[in-house]
Design a protein around this nucleic acid. Sequence first.
RNA 1: GCGCCAGUGGCGGAAUGGUAGACGCGCUGGUCUUAGGAACCAGUGGGCAACCGUGGGGGUUCGAGUCCCUCCUGGCGCACCA
Length: 787
Amino acid sequence: MSKKYILEMFPYPSGNIHMGHVRNYVIGDICARYHKLKGDEVIHPMGWDAFGLPAENAAIQFNTHPQDWTLKNIQNMKSQLKKLDLDLDWEKELSTCEKNYYQCQQELFIDFYNSGLAYKKDALVNWDPEDQTVLANEQVIDGKGWRTGAVVEQKILSQWFFKITNYAEELLHGLDELTLWPEKVKTMQKNWIGKSIGAEINFEIFEKNDQLNIFTTRPDTIYGATFIAISVNHKLVGKYLNNNEINNIKKTFAQSTDEKEKIGFLTGIECKHPINNKKLPVYIANFVLDNYGEGAIFGCPAHDERDYEFAIKYNLQIIKVIECDDDQLPFTQDGKLINSPLVDGLKKTEAIIKITNYFEEKNIGKRSINYKLRDWGVSRQRYWGCPIPVIYYEDGSYRVLEKSELPVLLPYDVDLNGKGNALLNHDNWRKIICPKTKKIAFRETDTLDTFVDSSWYYIRFLDNKLGTPFNPQRVDEYLPVDKYIGGIEHAILHLLYSRFFMKALRDIYKLKVNEPFQQLFTQGMITHKTYRTQKNEWVMPKDVISDRGKLIRDKTRETIEEGPSEKMSKSKKNVIEPDEILSNYGIDATRIFMISDSPPDRELEWTDEGIQSSKNLIRRIERYFTINKTSLKEDTEKMVEKFVNNIEKNILNFSLNKCVADIYTLFNYLEKEKIYLNNNEISKKILICLHPIVPKMSSNLSKRLFNDDIITKWPNINNMLLIENSINLPIQIQGKLVTTIETEKGYLEKDILKSIYKIDKIKNKLHDRKVVKIINVQDKIINIITD
RNA sequence: GCGCCAGUGGCGGAAUGGUAGACGCGCUGGUCUUAGGAACCAGUGGGCAACCGUGGGGGUUCGAGUCCCUCCUGGCGCACCA
């Protein structure tokens, strides 16, 4: 018996499940049920990603408590999930807001700290003014908060970080092992990690006992350097400019309306070119990123578009060091180096090696690898999260608690109406006497990013009631998750964090597992047409009716305009409520529709016709099995065997839309040929194969027909029955199809040619042409080549 | 700009380099009516035909929707990453 850990991304308990959840969980359920019937030891748990801001917002809005709100939602969503007939291991259920769970997470935090993977530093952080909290780099999209869409501000705060950068290289290389992950997700992670190979160069500063480090991927173009540019947040800026000047520069940068406009300010300092000692002016420039590399660049205008634009604007020298025409500047392609005494005549790769070696010899630079990936900032200034197990003393020093001092419980009695973090305002909770030193101390009031919660829940499922986070032996036995199914929106955040966690825990606990998820399947979203009134009000699909060929709003009879199909969203009101669908069409039809119209990894458009025809199919199968007689044909067994084989293959490939086609094909055949199976053994096979997809109908029918639970074991396939003896052989002339002939497999080429040449169509085509060659792909095709 | 993915009937989609369009939706005609959110039968890529058809153009091959090159279009991701 082999284990199969099948997992769907656990939901945030927002109150109600939506169609996206239904699709996600139906896909996983089909898979899990299939493997169970195959006799595998299936783990298929479900839980709740229960911490997070919406609970706090709801608490304020509805005058409730985040915990009460969350627990109530969980209860409701659980009952909704139960209606979907999902075969879940409910005894493994967990919720990240349970004391049990977050206490373990506090233990992990302590482990991380003791291993040097958690640390605190002052950092320029992304501040989401709406949520009043810090966001990780990954959580800022286009300068806006991933959840709120508010423009993110920069603030300096003392924050906890996880050292994900320790694993940058392994996170990158590990992607190669993940052969069952979508390429797309791997590419996104690769780009996010952003590895660049180059060199670090130290520039001396004239007349100051100071130096400036620069990371570059193009040390070969060093002779073309004509200026230096640094970020306004670079540490040298504070040294040589006063606050007033710095603020003015920042202001000017912020006021620029064109994001790509290059703006620079001279600092007054100059760097020494590391080879020819020329003076290079140092600018503060808005296009230099402070969180990448060293926050400084050398400008080589002839061979970099940005530097070129900057040099033109500030009238800086442009020195060509790669052979090209002047009108090709900036020339960024590979070429032969010129005006570079050390590397003249070389190509880029060789020049890079030679220059870097030179720097290393002279001790003015070295080979360097740079990653875009930053350490993961995990502090959140919010109440409804896992408290960070740290206390601070009055002198500003802090102590990470010991495991024996856990848990740090979230207080229930909080005032959420105040500004900022409710924990910070809760003096009774915050102020303590340190049990070790007996000194006055204050608890850390930041809580952990909820992405921490979801970085290890798949491990916790294995032993959800254990006093420690997990049992290492069981982790090695049951991880990785064999099939992980969820939305692609987690391609970077959740999936990268989880991979980091798995590797960190592996190193701390000496586990064998390297990657948390062996196969990743990203299901597509569900879309629906959008409807709006002429006043631009969105209208829900169920409120739109057709009236003499026109769409109108049911209640007000306003004219409705139909818009394109878009992802179901509350804001556009193009949502279909699972509860209503389930009560109108039933669970089996809903499950069928979730997989029928498109492959599971593509988007699925919700249509009334689609759900209706799914329902019709269910009724058709039920009707078929009411026919109380038995009549078989010679090839019936064969057809059913093919059906079993196809369903199995298609479930394993996640080609679930083809499973639906297989079902139609089978019943089209049975009905057309007037074959009735009644309670024949063949019916058993069919019902078992239908079971993963439509479990309710399959169970009901099997009870009715067999008075017994026959859904126990997936049928063994008799390969002999899959072999086709007679085939329809295509005959081509010059590679073009002319006709097909019925024949037995294993025909002799010369025999079959005799009968082919007798066919009129062939005779006519060939008439006086000479046959020069016969391509016979045995049992597949015959191609006649003429001159 | 860079990267990835995808372009197949009216629509959703099938096709280990070997009969393009499985299966479904829709549509057309018909049947049955205990008028249904039915069901059943026949048909449904284009063209009267020979033939032509998988975004355009090249190529490889006996044979290309599938492989290679190139261009176009659309989607997604990243984006001043030095």
